[in-house]
């Protein structure tokens, strides 16, 4: 009888012991963005907030290893993903530069049975992986529609294209062009390329405003470009005369809104994307099924809402 009671007690305690043992070993997730960039730093902040939340609520320690490529180049990113696979993490959280170009490397992760979650991008076709992010086209459309309204649906506008090889930048530009094409009195007179650099964006925007003195508005396709545009508008003394609707929520962008240089920005909520990517990765590591897509939405940030 005593033996039976002892066995029962041991069996009853096993899940608790197992849980305690699991919790003592941290889950290690490697977070690999497209490139070193302040937007991804905000995303990393959100990821760490999710890790803290999970630890506080469940006792499970979560380690986030942030590995950003120095350049937005698929082969460089693949190298980093492969090296992360070599360390056998509990999950990979990836912002894919090109889902087809990343495919072979992701297949290697699948072979090694490493769960993956993608954010700010979509997984390769046929891969059952949760994607966390916002609709890029919707983001560009919101920005362009807002600018169209600001300028009374007429006048010359310009688009800062971002990095020409980045699919999300190209998509935003296409959707912005579609919006402007709806209004016969709006003419897109110039498109600049900022390569996701504030300095380049500033130079391009200054040159375009010199060449097109009747320009009345700007939209952009990445996070750095609109900051450069705002600086160019301020330097040329055209704040208020040339309208700007930015993208994303870099601190410089928010300051431009506070200063009245830019009217607003359409932000794809990087902190929230990082947060839910970690939650999804944690669920995958626990063997739970996760949704196909988590839409973190678009925020329109104005001086009033800041």
């Amino acid at each position: 009888m005593k033996k039976a009671l002892l066995l029962g007690a041991v069996l009853a305690a096993t899940p608790l012991v197992a849980q305690a043992a699991d919790n003592s070993t941290p889950l290690r997730f490697v977070l690999i963005p497209k490139v070193v960039h302040p937007w991804f730093d905000k995303l990393n902040t959100g990821a760490r907030a999710a890790a803290d939340m999970i630890t506080k609520t469940t006792g499970q320690k979560i380690e986030i290893e942030y590995r950003a490529p120095q350049t937005a180049d698929v082969s460089s990113q693949n190298d980093i993903i492969e090296r992360a696979i070599a360390t056998h993490p509990d999950g990979l959280i990836l912002d894919l530069l090109d889902e087809k170009g990343n495919r072979a490397t992701m297949d290697e992760a699948t072979e090694q049975k490493i769960p993956m979650t993608v954010f700010d991008s979509l997984p390769p076709e046929g891969m059952n992986i949760t994607a966390v992010g916002a609709d890029f086209c919707e983001q560009g459309t919101i920005a362009a529609e807002r600018l169209a309204t600001l300028i009374g649906k007429k006048g010359e506008v310009a688009i800062m294209m971002g990095v020409p090889t980045a699919p999300n930048h190209t998509l935003r530009a296409e959707c912005e062009k579609k919006v402007f094409a709806k209004y016969p009195d709006i003419k897109v007179v110039a498109t600049g390329i900022d390569n996701d650099s504030i300095e380049t964006g500033q130079k391009q925007a200054s040159a375009i405003m010199q060449a097109h003195p009747n320009l009345v508005g700007w939209v952009a396709c990445d996070a750095s470009g609109p900051v450069g545009i705002g600086q160019a508008i301020r330097e040329s003394g055209k704040a208020g005369k040339v309208q700007e609707v930015g993208l994303d929520n870099l601190n410089d962008m928010l300051q431009l809104i506070r200063d009245g240089v830019a009217e607003s920005t359409a932000s794809s909520r990087p902190e929230m994307q990082g947060y839910w990517a970690v939650v999804s990765a944690w669920q995958s590591a626990m063997g739970q099924k996760t949704p196909k897509y988590i839409d973190t939405g678009i925020d329109v940030i104005t001086k009033k809402s800041l």
């Binding site: 180049d73 460089s76 090109d98 170009g101």
Partner: peptide, 13 residues
């Protein structure tokens, strides 16, 4: 051949 796509960014580094 490695990537399975011809990326315009090949060679940047």
């Amino acid at each position: 051949a490695r990537l399975g796509t011809a990326q315009p960014s090949i060679g940047d580094t």
